[in-house]
Computed example of a mutant assay.
Amino acid sequence: MSELIILGCIVGLLSGFFGVGGGTILVPLLLLLGYETKVAIGISVTQMLFSSVYGSYLNNKKGTLDVAIVIVVGIGGFIGGLLSGFITSSVNDEILEVIFLSFAIFALLRLFITTKEHHEQKEVSKILLFIIGFVIGAISMSIGVGGSIILVPILVGFLHVPLKKAVSAGLLFVVFSSLAGLISHTMSEDIDYMSGIIIGSVSLIGVYFGIVLKDIVDEVLQKRLLGSFYFLVVIYLINRIFLEV
């Protein structure tokens, strides 16, 4: 119990400080503690529902949440997320870890790529938005991450959505996808509810203090610390997947 409370505080603090989904942080930490990959993914999906709902509430209070942007892509993410439990159950742990490693490498590279912002937002086909949401929801929920780090650059770089709106939309998208992921993983019996609820509840406290800390620390230092964290995750996963006997 005590280790879950400590883990929840750490995950929430890092999520709030770095502005990333808890899954990117939580899954490798759970693997490090000896949890099986599929159990770690199930716990992460549960925790994400807590943090994404809370974060979307805060964004709505600040007036940065535009529901209209994300409703179609969110529905696609929800339906895609419903497949995640089946995907996770059908794929062995090694392949899931390789997919997560690919995601972590992408997240690391994203830190060094500046997405160009545009002044005018594009009118985009709702069918295209649905397909984007469906694919991201299915893949991200299968490895226990929110998917916003993939969705936000698409919204900003290709659909010309303003960055602040895109970030808020990305977090609301996680509400849709994580709810579907929770349903799907429940049907596949991959969820350790008690651990997920404890970590998710405690992480909300960490998120608050992480956001406070984020406003104090220099943005350049914050980016370097986030890059260092992702680098450590990548090294750990490479060692776990390819070097451990």
Rank of each mutant, 00 (worst) to 15 (best):
I197W: 10
L65V: 00
A104G: 14
G77C: 01
T88M: 02
I99M: 08
L96Q: 10
G146A: 07
L182S: 14
I87R: 02
F176R: 04
H160E: 11
M1N: 14
S102F: 15
G81H: 09
L204M: 08
N92M: 08
F112V: 02
F209S: 00
V217A: 03
V91Y: 10
G81S: 03
I199T: 04
L179C: 07
S228Q: 07
V174L: 07
L163C: 08
A40H: 04
G227D: 00
L49W: 11
H119A: 13
V233M: 04
G23D: 08
L237S: 10
E120K: 14
L111F: 05
Y57S: 05
L159M: 15
F130M: 03
T37C: 03
S51L: 11
G16M: 00
L4A: 04
L179S: 15
L171S: 14
K62L: 09
K165F: 15
I79G: 03
V20H: 11
I127C: 02
V167R: 11
I216V: 06
G42Q: 02
L151H: 13
G200V: 00
I105P: 01
R240D: 11
V45K: 02
F103N: 13
V27W: 13
G74D: 08
V174W: 01
L111K: 08
L31K: 08
I10T: 14
V67P: 15
I131F: 04
G74E: 03
V145H: 09
L26S: 06
Y54Q: 13
